[in-house]
């Protein structure tokens, strides 16, 4: 299977992701922000697909776009929009924000420039896409079994904690 128009799709998806990201932070309406975030997440899923990682893309869609964002929207929808728009949005800490963004940007550039020599050259080989899910499974349950189980335990604790906190009497 040979990919077509790779640069086009790459720039399209990246552009969409960026656009979504910008919209998230500029929209005043929280629902619009959430929807823009979904756009970003979907574009990211597309990028994963281009990287021959369909499983990650699928999980991205089903968990982030389909699951978490629905809950997000749920909460936002319950808050009155007219009222939230009237309210002061956030503390307008422009200076701090710019400094933080600048530092982060410099860091990225430095890592990219300096780290190029450290990291191995990008491999041109195409991973075996048809075994992607199986590979992820093998890695998770053989190589990183312990970490995986720890993470699941943490999540379980979080779930129980959430239930206990949300429910007044059990």
């Amino acid at each position: 299977m040979t990919p077509i128009a790779t640069p086009f799709f790459f720039y399209l998806l990246s552009g969409l992701a960026l656009l979504g990201g910008i919209l998230v932070i500029t929209r005043k309406n929280a629902v619009h922000s959430a929807l823009a975030l979904i756009l970003t997440l979907l574009a990211l899923a597309g990028l994963y697909l281009m990287l021959y990682a369909p499983f990650v893309a699928g999980v991205q869609i089903i968990l982030y776009a389909g699951g978490i964002m629905v809950l997000f929207l749920f909460v936002i929808m319950l808050v009155s929009i007219e009222r939230s728009q009237k309210e002061e949005q956030f503390n307008k800490q422009w200076i701090v924000g710019f400094i933080a963004a600048g530092v982060l940007g410099v860091l990225f550039v430095l890592v990219y420039v300096k780290g190029r020599a450290l990291l191995p050259a990008p491999t041109a080989q195409i991973p075996n896409e048809s075994q992607n899910t199986q590979n992820v499974g093998v890695l998770l349950y053989r190589e990183y079994m312990f970490a995986f189980e720890i993470a699941s335990l943490l999540l379980l604790v979080a779930i129980i904690g959430a239930v206990v906190m949300a429910k007044k009497r059990i």
Partner: peptide
């Protein structure tokens, strides 16, 4: 009241 019109 205007602000009472929500569920949350």
């Amino acid at each position: 009241e205007e602000h009472d019109k929500t569920f949350l």
